[in-house]
């Protein structure tokens, strides 16, 4: 097996390397990918047609919004997939044993966490909201928000975190996130445009079609953030308790 693996890996590697010889050299701005019409279009026109300076956000949430919708669905699948595979409903499901639970980490850690958690969460919300102008967006913000709850669970025990973010609530959050995203697309559909064609929303949003795109991106980013937050936490809580959701790390 080892030898076979080695041979296979080397064949694959050599094939890939053999192809690099006719790649444009690294960083060449005239390479086909960087100089092509599509990427030029994104760089030059994005701000004009969407009013969003962060091209990545614009491309992510608008030009390739369909991809991103499925990206969110992927996260969602991972969340419910983990539950489907791992979740153990036989234990005390609804009534978590709050008293006899773990109490998380030591005092100092708990103190520090309680101090920084609000900042993390506020920063996460900022990242979600400010994705148009700076790095970030729904996904990054969502992960941070989810991570803040993970931190909460680590510091104060899972039960504490579950009191805020119960399994039921997690699922609702996750579903609502996708629902916001897809529903926004369907709204475009109902208003006569293609799916996810935000420009037709200018009839119900302030501003022109470009601003409508800009606002819509914010909406779908929020949707993504919802799902990602919920699933990140659900992932952690299931994986750290072998699906029992009773006792954290």
């Amino acid at each position: 097996m080892k030898v076979f693996g080695l041979v296979a890996v080397f064949v694959v590697g050599l094939l890939l390397l053999s192809a690099t010889q006719d790649f444009p050299s690294w960083g060449n701005p005239r390479s086909a990918a960087s100089d092509g019409e599509v990427s030029s279009f994104y760089i030059e026109k994005t701000e004009a047609v969407t009013k969003v300076p962060n091209m990545v956000t614009a491309v992510l949430a608008d030009f390739r919004g369909y991809d991103t919708m499925f990206e969110t669905v992927v996260i969602f699948i991972a969340g419910i997939g983990i539950i489907a595979v791992l979740r153990n409903f036989e234990g005390s499901d609804s009534s978590i044993d709050y008293d006899n639970d773990d109490n998380g980490a030591g005092l100092l850690a708990r103190f520090t966490c309680s101090l920084i958690l609000p900042f993390i969460q506020i920063f996460a919300l900022y990242v979600v909201a400010h994705g148009h102008h700076s790095p970030g967006g729904g996904f990054q913000g969502g992960v941070m928000l989810g991570a803040s709850y993970i931190l909460l669970a680590l510091a104060f025990g899972l039960s504490k975190a579950k009191r805020i973010f119960s399994e039921r609530r997690t699922m609702i959050f996750a579903v609502v996130g996708i629902f916001i995203y897809v529903g926004w697309g369907v709204l475009c559909l109902l208003l006569g445009g293609e799916f996810l064609n935000y420009s037709v929303l200018d009839s119900i949003l302030p501003g022109d079609a470009m601003m409508a795109r800009s606002y819509s991106m914010l909406v779908v980013e929020i949707g993504v953030a919802f799902t990602v937050t919920a699933i990140m936490f659900s992932m952690y809580s299931n994986l750290s308790t072998r699906g029992r959701l009773s006792k954290g790390l």
Binding site: E37, F41, Y42, Y66, G193, E194, F195, L196, N197
Partner: peptide
């Protein structure tokens, strides 16, 4: 052919959307 988001091809005919 269904263009997501209603993105028409750019000037030279390349699709920018999905």
């Amino acid at each position: 052919r269904y263009r997501m988001g209603g993105w028409e091809p750019e000037a030279n005919g390349y699709e920018v959307g999905i």
